[in-house]
């Protein structure tokens, strides 16, 4: 499984998609941050202003708006379709899946490597863009990330988004006949909540849970718990179920 993952992570096709996502997201995040003229109001002594400033700064950490989500979903769908369907289309799979490992293990390692790539392709440019804009206020950034507990929530945020996108795409990839169908299908499914304005599905539900957790709760631990709590069903349970179904399907379906 480890070898399989390593192999996927070094695959040139995957890496081209990875770079596409990385650069596009980085640019979008950056331009989003330059547009940023966030205002906040608070009254109280200077310490309150400082902590509110750090909190507001933490809330400006790049997240997935409509534009960003489009790129993100596209990258995720491309990665997963390439990994899970393309090799089957090109018959390379025959050799991979004939190794003495169970099918689901191969699929799982592919899904995991897709997650790693997508996670890196979003988190790294997010931090890069943030530092390229706000690199001159290290104290406040530190305060926001650690004192206000944004780091944990932010990592979880991306992990959840990645899990969702990869598991939706994986399920579609397992169900579809070829790479093209898989790509189209996953993009459609991933984009549907945005077009239909479904607030109860990701990305809206995760975004809202994050925002709510960090604006209504005071303590970092509470914030993380509230965040997870708010996005649990569609941000965590649903993707896990979908991924599980995808794995079970991979066992049923023939490799071809």
């Amino acid at each position: 499984m480890k070898i399989q993952m390593k192999w996927e992570l070094e695959d040139p096709y995957n890496l081209i998609v990875f770079m596409f996502g990385f650069i596009m997201l980085g640019i979008t995040f950056f331009s989003g941050l330059t547009r940023n003229d966030v205002v906040f109001m608070v009254s109280g002594p200077d310490e309150i202003i400082v902590s509110e400033s750090a909190k507001t700064l933490g809330l400006t950490l790049p997240r997935l708006g409509t534009e960003e989500y489009t790129i993100f979903a596209l990258t995720g769908a491309l990665l997963v379709s390439l990994m899970m369907r393309y090799d089957r289309d090109t018959r390379v799979a025959k050799s991979v899946y004939s190794l003495p490992v169970r099918n689901y293990s191969v699929v799982l390692s592919k899904a995991l490597s897709a997650m790693v790539l997508l996670f890196l392709a979003s988190l790294l440019p997010a931090f890069l863009a943030f530092v390229y804009i706000h690199g001159d206020i290290p104290d406040l950034i530190g305060r926001a990330l650690f004192g206000e507990g944004f780091l944990a929530g932010y990592l979880i945020y991306w992990a959840m988004m990645v899990l969702y996108v990869v598991s939706v795409s994986a399920l579609v990839a397992m169900l579809s006949p070829n790479t093209f169908a898989s790509l189209l299908g996953s993009i459609t499914l991933l984009y549907a909540p945005l077009v239909l304005k479904l607030r109860s599905l990701p990305p809206a539900v995760i975004n809202e849970a994050f925002f709510k957790a960090y604006t209504t709760q005071f303590y970092p631990a509470d914030r993380v718990v509230t965040f997870l709590d708010g996005s649990f069903y569609t941000g965590l349970l649903l993707p896990v179920v979908m991924l599980g179904v995808a794995l079970i399907l991979s066992e049923w379906r023939d490799v071809s």
Binding site: L9, E10, P12, L15, F18, M19, F22, I23, G26, I27, F30, S31, T34, R35, L117, L120, L124, P125, L128, A129, Y132
Partner: peptide
């Protein structure tokens, strides 16, 4: 290769941010 991809993307982003910022 992954490391190379990350490094290359970082360089590209670094170059690209300047014109974007100038506009903004």
């Amino acid at each position: 290769r992954l490391l190379k991809a990350i490094l290359l993307s970082t360089i590209l982003i670094t170059i690209l941010v300047f014109p974007i910022e100038k506009n903004a």
